[in-house]
Structure formats: structure tokens, C-alpha cells
Design a protein around this nucleic acid. Sequence first.
DNA 1: TCGGATT
Length: 496
Amino acid sequence: MYIKMATLANGQADNASLSTNGLGSSPGSAGHMNGLSHSPGNPSTIPMKDHDAIKLFIGQIPRNLDEKDLKPLFEEFGKIYELTVLKDRFTGMHKGCAFLTYCERESALKAQSALHEQKTLPGMNRPIQVKPADSESRGEDRKLFVGMLNKQQSEDDVRRLFEAFGNIEECTILRGPDGNSKGCAFVKYSSHAEAQAAINALHGSQTMPGASSSLVVKFADTDKERTMRRMQQMAGQMGMFNPMAIPFGAYGAYAQALMQQQAALMASVAQGGYLNPMAAFAAAQMQQMAALNMNGLAAAPMTPTSGGSTPPGITAPAVPSIPSPIGVNGFTGLPPQANGQPAAEAVFANGIHPYPAQSPTAADPLQQAYAGVQQYAGPAAYPAAYGQISQAFPQPPPMIPQQQREGPEGCNLLIYHLPQEFGDAELMQMFLPFGNVISSKVFVDRATNQSKCFGFVSFDNPASAQTAIQAMNGFQIGMKRLKVQLKRPKDANRPY
DNA sequence: TCGGATT
């Protein structure tokens, strides 16, 4: 073996001599192979391989060896189905490794045990690698994603937790750029069965201190799933899934702009003097309704993640209302001047109310807010709207569904005591009047899909965040008051 | 009560 490898490295002449040992085939053509791939051991038969054949990865090959040089070496263990040296896609440069498939599974196993890390080919400083290619078991059927770990837990801690269920080949805590644990990890076992056993035993079995729900143990994403996730993230960031861009015809954009301007108007009014949170909130509701009506058509089929909580009295009436006053009067495409009914009136005429359960007394802040709003929404107010809008909102803030994104320090708010039925979108709507919301997230219990009644909102600048705190902290909704404060900066504060 | 996260 050793001798053979040594000879191999010496090139052509030796190669010829190897071929004469009876193992190498087609010595006559050896020098003429184009090197693109492979070759069944016997060209006269149709190459067949076991259905469970193993594709081997061969690493640490000197770059001066090509297929014809390698073939004799590996043919010793069985008939070769395919042998391909990996080349750079563009330069064609030998990458120092190859894929090898034997016709028989058994041959691959023999080759692996005989060669893997057993010898170092001349010119290499590490031993030859012969092992199943990554593409074979992709590892994914025995690799687990572990979530809801304590962020203090180390690789060793996780290993200890998982070692009872099998041989752990790999254990990695996912960490951010700063090295802090993200509270999740990958654990790779030697076999699928071990991984499954760990899932059975550990998933949901305990809740780590500081974790918001019980331990998650599941198979890691497949390549396909990961690709999907990446694509969705990309699309989200680029606004490609902006649901408002989709279902309406020529008038859709107009209707949308109309609604946003109405809301913007109210917001600017609210911000004009001292801040009036109620008006601001009402403005937010306006935008929300605009959004919901747009989303109602497009988002429902497109955002399964939003499945579940539809705020009673908000989404529910809004969606069926498409053929109702909003759809008919507000969005028929007639300019507001023409039909005399700005969208705002149509909305309120529609009877949509965020909290229908509450009695509409004058003491109800929302009622007051709406009452105040309606006067701004009247047709007479309209011409003035443009001036104010162009000052306050040169461009309406984009309402794009966001990935969870943190803003700069001082721009991220933590909001407690949200209404149970508030989701990300509602949260965003509520804070949109104060600036450009780059992210909103209501924390949801994974098991029940219920809101935990707190969430995050990120602005793109600290002033907006401060404005929002001033306006919304202590704002009463139903029986509760919002608590709005700056999110704690990520790093800092570890009490020892 | 401080983001359900993905080599």
C-alpha cells in the first residue's frame, strides 16, 4: 500500500506500471482521458451501482494526480462506478479532492477502512481522507437543533445533556458576533436513531432558567428549508412581500395612499402641539385599518405565520368588509373630492372599533379619540392635509412586514401590557405615528400561540423612540396601561 | 417582564 501510493505520486511512468498489475483498466487510453469524470471499471458493461452505494469524498490528494492516476489506487477495493476529481468551476484548477462511488457499497466501506487517514500521499502534509461525502447523509437526519437553552450554557453543558442518548459527533452553540450564546445549538449524533432518542427524551422535558419556554429539540433544517428561510429573509428585507403591492388594481395604490395620508394627517395633528396620545393612537388605528384592509386580501394566504390571533373587532370585521362601505365607497377609485367621503369616514361608518366589548361611553378614551379624529377627517380638512403631510411625512412611512431587526441603541422599545389580541402588525401600527418603525415583535407563547402581552418596537432613530415613550407610556387600553420603556442594551448588565 | 434563534 505504502509503496503503491509513493509510486503513484511519481506520475506517468509509474502509473503505467501500476496499470500492469492487472487492477488498472484501459491502460491504453489512460493518457487521453479528458479528466472530466470517471469511468466504470469495465467499459464494456453498463455501469451499475448498488442502490445503497456510498459516495465517498477523497481528500488530501496531490494536485498532480487526476482520475487516471487515482483509479488504480481505488480499484483495489472494487469496481469503480464513478470517480471525479473536483475542479474549480471557473479556473478548472484541481481542488485536491475527489468524489468516488463504487458499484458496490461494500467496496466503499473497505476502501474507507483501509485508506482513511491511514497514509499521507507524497507532497501532502495531512493523511488522505476517505469518507462518505457530505451529500450522502448530509448529516441532517442525525443533526438536531436545540432551542431554548440558557444563554450561559456551554458546549460542555449541552454535551452532558445529550450524551446519554448516543455518540455526539459535534456540538456547537450558536453565537452572535460578540460571542454571546443565542440560546440554541446544533448537536450531531452518529446515527438518526440516537438523534431521535434524544428528541423523544429531551424535547419539552425541562425549562432552562431564564428561557421563555421549555427546551426545544428537533431535527435541524434541511438544506432546502434553510434556503427557503434565507430567501424569505431576503425578500422580507427587500420588501418584496409587501402585501399591499399586490391585489389592487390601478386604484389600489391610490386608496392606500389615501388611507395613509389620512392617518398621517391625524398623527401630525397629534404631534403638532403637546402630544395627545389618544389622537395619535387613533391615527395609528387608522393606518392599521388601511393596512388590514390591504392585508386582508393579500396577507392572509401569504403570511401563515400570522395565523391564529385575529384581534376581535379589528381584523375580523375588516376583512369581510371589503365589499362593505370601505370597499364600495372608499375604494371605488373615485377621488375623495369626488365622492365627498374621505376614507376615514368610510372606515368609521363601517363601525369598526378596536374594542367593541367596551361600552362606548364618553369616558372611553378610544371613543374620545375617535370623536376627535372624525373632525379632522372631514372633507373640509382635506386641502390642509397635503401641506401638513408633506411637512410631517414627506413620504409615508413604509409599512413593510419586517424581520426582527434591532435599531441602534436607544431606538428599541419594550412594551408591556399589550392587549392580548395585539400582534406584530397592530403593535407596529400603534407606534408608526412616532417615526419609522423598522421592526415590531409581540412575544408569543410558542405552545399556545397566545401573546405574552409584551413586545418590541424598533425605530430608526432615538428621537422617535423617546417621542413614543412620552406619548404611549402609561397609555390606557381597556383595563391596562401600557408600559413603554427603552429596551435594555444587549451586552451590558450582567450582575456578576 | 428584555426578541422563537439556524453552522
